[in-house]
Design a binder for these strands. Structure first.
Lengths: 157, 157
DNA sequence: TTGTGTGCAAACGGTTTGCATCTCC
DNA sequence: GGAGATGCAAACCGTTTGCACACAA
């Protein structure tokens, strides 16, 4: 269980990232490592925005700028290491990408922002059929269900 | 076929809007009528951004400001008359809302922006099951499939 | 050594807001 | 008459960019 050994996990991720970067003549810097670490440490079902990353990093005394964060995120999305998801208004969130076969979706509480991840093969299938039917080449799909969670149903309305 | 009689269609829409507004002590102004008209005239499968509305309205010699457009759109979304959809980056699009039973989804070309609408009962079902399973109250769901259309596959890559 | 990456500060662009004025009911 | 709506200009805020400097390979 590598999940019992976070350091090995970090090292793995760094090596993967380093080799991918090197293939393209890019470099593995401290900042890029730190950003990746934050995602590796983030529990499943949570997502990080640029602000989250900035806040978590600076709280730990690490120095990083927003420009670096955004540039690193874009780069990793382009490399296929991360995925950009639309969960809430006016802000982008990021998560480590998983294999296309394990594509997952999000259930979001519009009131408190609570997010659940779920998989549904019917949705996956629908995206494949629809792209095929129109002669499209599938790139990504986002299925986001918005609702009000149980807690918020009590406090609001 | 009321689609053969656009004027009746406009009148219908205006009356619906007026009665909804009056229930809340709100008013039906010229600007709000014009905005709604643009959506009624827009063919199925097309969506309007605030900029689209501003451009189409001013091209016709009508005077309207962005603040009014945004305020009207928010109001109509809150009244359930319109739906806000995320199709492209950094911009919101709007469409007239349809009954929850006829919920539809979008297939978008990430290169040229071409959009196809489609319905899929499996997706609708999945959204219902997922909200139910977590005790959520379903509000809306967005299923957006991103790909590259046939034309763009030829010209890009 | 050199081209890539970083931080800073300023710019960007879609959206929102404060305020004076106007207008629908 | 009075609450609600509009237009203008400025503010907002997440994101991007130009540039001088720093650093990985």
């Amino acid at each position: 269980m590598e999940s019992n050994n976070p350091e090995a996990n970090f090292a793995d991720q760094h090596n993967i990232l380093r080799s991918r970067l090197n293939q393209k003549g890019l470099r593995l810097t401290d900042q890029r490592q730190k950003i990746l670490d934050l995602f590796v440490m983030t529990p499943d079902g949570e997502h990080l925005s640029a602000e989250d990353i900035y806040y978590q990093a600076t709280t730990k005394g690490e120095k990083i700028s927003y420009s670096t964060i955004y540039r690193a995120l874009h780069m990793m999305v382009n490399l296929g290491i991360m995925r950009e998801v639309e969960l809430a208004e006016g802000r982008k969130y990021y998560e480590l990408s998983t294999s296309p076969a394990k594509q997952h979706h999000h259930l979001v509480c519009v009131h408190c922002g609570e997010v659940h991840e779920f998989e549904d093969h019917r949705v996956t299938k629908a995206s494949q059929q629809e792209t095929l039917g129109h002669g499209f080449l599938l790139r990504d799909c986002q299925f986001t269900v918005y609702g009000i969670c149980q807690m918020c149903q009590l406090s609001v309305i």
